[in-house]
Write a protein that binds this DNA or RNA. Structure first.
Length: 304
DNA sequence: CATGTTTCCTGACAGC
DNA sequence: TGCTGTCAGGAAACAT
């Protein structure tokens, strides 16, 4: 399942392949689940737009778009010659099984393809998602300034600067801010790590792996961890995520990057999906419990 | 507000 | 072989 390292790998791969290209046409499938914006809004924002940049924010892929206002919009009544380009963003969340692929047009279109963007060099960006937990949406950043109150960002973290995600970036957060996230929380630290409104980007695999590296049990109350333990946990999260990015992510399930390549971090997993197998540090069998409805793996000897 | 529980989906896999 | 039942899990909706 795509978490921060997988999304980063995919976003970088797509960026390298399509940056600077324009979207000629858009096809959307008939299943409604993947569309967080309406199909009309998606088509309107994407068609004719230029892809300026593809990057990761939390677990989202953010595609920055521009379009010359003069070219496609009705002639602006005000300032005739010098209209600013329209700006928008395409947000892609891959959910559990989503893929964002850059393909040649003659490659067969797999089942569960929900969106195809045709580029000006004839290649296609395809969104494929069998389980349909993924989500596509668009933001109109040019319109953002005018509507004052009313539609706030409602936790999705969109501002006039565009999408900033629901929480803090695990790789950037200072240690004091990291500690503050968990202050007073009674929920298990594993649950808190999965809460995207606190840190965004960490999912089930990297929560378990980080807690193992930090030597902290997943059921410890988040607000009762010592300052030193939280500092260690933050470092563990960052080193695990960076290592995973370096290796191209974890290919469990059917994850592949933008060109269909698998990652290799799954070979480095110390606890995830190793239930009953010996801990690689002490040999104690890895235990599996359920926390926040998620399979949770830990070493009862190494983690306290 | 904080926290826990249910729901959405399909593919994979166990068991018969 | 092929059917049925179970399960996984991100995030939002819903319940407490």
């Amino acid at each position: 399942m795509p978490e921060l390292p997988e999304v980063e790998t995919i976003a970088n791969g797509v960026d390298a392949r399509v940056r600077g290209r324009s979207i000629v046409s858009v096809w959307l499938g008939s299943k409604p689940e993947p569309f967080r914006s309406t199909p009309a809004e998606l088509v309107k924002a994407l068609t004719g737009s230029k892809i300026e940049h593809v990057r990761r924010v939390g677990k989202h892929i953010v595609v920055d778009l521009t379009r010359d206002s003069a070219a496609t919009r009705r002639r602006s009544t005000a300032a005739a010659g010098k209209s600013k380009p329209w700006r928008g963003q395409w947000l892609v969340h891959l959910g559990m099984t989503g893929r964002l692929l850059v393909c040649q047009p003659d490659e067969p279109v797999p089942k569960h393809t929900h969106a195809i963007l045709q580029l000006d060099d004839a290649r296609e960006v395809r969104f494929v998602d069998p389980r349909r937990f993924g989500r596509l949406s668009v933001l109109d950043l040019s319109a953002e300034a005018a509507p004052k109150t009313g539609k706030r960002e409602k936790g999705t973290g969109s501002t006039d600067k565009g999408f900033v995600g629901p929480g803090q970036e695990p790789l950037d957060i200072p240690v004091d801010a990291f500690r503050a996230l968990f202050r007073g929380r009674r929920t298990p630290i594993k649950s808190a790590l999965l809460n995207q409104k606190l840190l965004h980007g960490v999912g089930n695999i990297y929560a378990d792996e980080s807690l193992f590296h930090a030597g902290i049990r997943p059921l410890r109350q988040a607000g009762r961890l010592k300052a030193e333990e939280l500092a260690v946990l933050r470092s563990a999260i960052q080193s695990v995520l960076r290592e995973a990015i370096t290796l191209g992510g974890s290919s469990v399930s059917d994850y592949v990057d933008a060109s269909g390549e698998k990652g290799f971090f799954q070979l480095e997993h110390k606890v995830y999906l190793r239930t009953g197998e010996p801990c690689l540090v002490c040999g104690t069998p890895i235990r599996r419990i359920l926390v926040a409805g998620r399979g949770t793996h830990f070493c009862p000897h190494c983690q306290h």
